[in-house]
Design a protein around this nucleic acid. Structure first.
Lengths: 331, 331
DNA sequence: CTGAAAGCGCTTACAG
DNA sequence: CTGAAAGCGCTTACAG
């Protein structure tokens, strides 16, 4: 790889002149510039971004920490983040944690050591202290979907309302024994969905039926097992709320195997719909959320914090997206 | 952020001593070391990876270039890459191209400028020359799934056999009018699947029925539209081979809407199964491929090339995975 | 308009 | 066992 020095030598000027010519940061004599550009071309010189970053104290890179890429809303959000970041000239380092707090810790530690200017995180909830430390050291932090710390910026979804509205919707469709497939209550979205569900259950005088599993929460199998659990707990079950799409698909598979008809016998709704719902054999009624836009906004919020001059960093912002109920065949 | 210099000052030694103490690269007096470690702790010093990388000429970072994260086998592969890379102490910069060659070009250019030691790429096929250039400049390249250039290393799937075996399987199940939902033939996997399908069609004296669409190839909608197209072309259609899972799901949705029974009237098989197949309402018979392992192997192959001493870089390796036919309900 | 120097935060021969 | 110096590849005041 050719360096600035090589170009300077070939063009018979100082490296500083080359630097200025290429960055258009001050006037350079046209003749000189021409020589420099010719040398650049000849050597197929590409500036070393790392050296530039070190010198300027800016990495132009953001880290993304999410539970998993595959089959979850986080994959779609990551696409939005990467897309927006690219357009702003930023690269993205991606880390998936499988919701393992040790992996998350290792990833956070790696990122903090000068690799990134900011981090967008959907965390496990077990490294809040570390995340706050990292933020204090000058790295921008934006929480996405999962808010762990209200002193940091977030891009969220109104999950309490989401849980409440879904339960109310099912109830208006005639359900009176509605089960909730949820996830760990240590994570805000699951807690909030539960709160909303609970409020509706009380308001409409319905039993509270919930199920969880030890499996990773964003999986098809989780939904399959938890649906079986719900049925065991309450044979009158006539509605299932699944926290995420993957769970809803797994639940519908279980119902199919038990020869239970959806929506006639049991109605199913997903509380985190993204893109697969409409194309399923029995299309999945869902509270849809704009995953791509959430990613884009999270990236922009993070970059805004990164680029704010020291001393006038914005205080913690919170952006809350509503869900939109999309009625399909399953409920 | 504290730096080496700060630690050195606090511990009353030279920065070089601190560096040595922390890297365990040569003996340091226990007393000195103790002072240094105390200073590190007190200042909560974290070494700047960028500076280290610049000095050592190694980034410990690999780039991942894939079409999309969401709902494709590439998301699952990316997880495998990231997992293996993390275990080897590498970070991953991710870029998704949406199969747009201009986006791909921009991403490649960014990565080449000192950001990464190696790149794992599932490319569009339109930047082969650039990729070869980047490789020539000393960056390790590993192609995954899509082989564009046989002079570079690859981790692949035997797609010709895949297409042939799937067609043969459907034929043995009694199909005689089998349609193929494929993608752009400029990409090796689609071309190879087509070749295999064609060979089977000739061998068994079956008509060749194919459909494509202008939509992004890895989408549910692509399968939906292409299935409709196949039906229009040949009303006798009794088998559908979908190049990827997402297409198969979309195709099954179309058949459901047309009240065509799967598998009784039309059998459906996916040629790139990963994890969703078994949990669909009508589970999807598929040629399954080990996406996580493919990612892991691609990362390890890339890192092996990165870490080989100059002058003894391995020549292009090719690793080909077989698919495994998993019989489920759809065929 | 351009060169020389200092410095970003590290590591690594080279002395002693 | 440890310090002083050089250098990774850049950028940016500072002179002139």
């Amino acid at each position: 790889m050719a360096t600035l020095k090589d170009v300077a030598k070939l063009a018979c000027v100082d490296v500083s002149t080359v630097s200025r010519a290429l960055s258009n940061t001050s006037y350079v004599h046209p003749e000189t510039k021409k020589r420099i550009l010719a040398a650049v071309k000849k050597l197929s010189y590409h500036p070393n971004i790392l050296a530039k970053a070190l010198r300027e104290g800016k990495r132009h890179t953001i880290g993304i920490i999410i539970p998993r890429l595959h089959l979850t809303v986080f994959g779609a959000i990551a696409q939005g983040i990467e897309e927006a970041a690219r357009k702003k000239g930023y690269s993205c380092i991606i880390c998936h944690t499988e919701d393992d707090s040790e992996i998350e810790k290792a990833s956070l530690t790696r990122l903090r050591n000068g690799l990134v200017d900011g981090i967008v995180v959907a965390g496990t909830g077990f490294n809040n202290h570390l995340i706050r430390d990292i933020h204090a050291s000058g790295i921008a932090i934006t929480q996405v979907i999962r808010r762990q710390d209200s002193s940091l910026s977030s891009v969220l979804v109104d999950y309490r309302k989401n849980g409440y509205e879904a339960a109310k919707y099912l109830r208006n469709k005639g359900c009176s024994n509605i089960g909730l497939i949820n996830g760990p209550m240590t994570l805000a979205p699951y807690k909030e969905r539960y709160d909303g569900y609970l409020a509706a259950a009380h308001e409409f005088n319905m039993p509270v039926i919930t199920a969880a599993s030890k499996l990773p929460v964003n999986t098809l199998e989780y939904g399959y097992k938890a649906a079986a659990e719900l049925l065991k707990r309450n044979p009158q079950l006539d509605g299932i709320m699944a926290a995420v799409d993957a769970q809803g698909i797994g639940a519908m598979r279980l119902l199919k195997e038990k020869a239970i008809k959806v929506p006639e016998q049991i109605k199913v709704i997903s509380l985190t719909g993204h893109i697969i719902g409409s194309m399923l054999e029995t299309s999945l009624t869902a509270m849809e959320l704009p995953s791509n836009e959430i990613g884009i906004k999270a990236a922009l919020m993070n970059i805004e914090e990164i680029e704010a001059p020291d001393g006038q960093k914005p205080s913690a912002q919170t952006l809350v997206f509503p869900c939109q109920l999309i009625e399909r065949e399953s409920a």
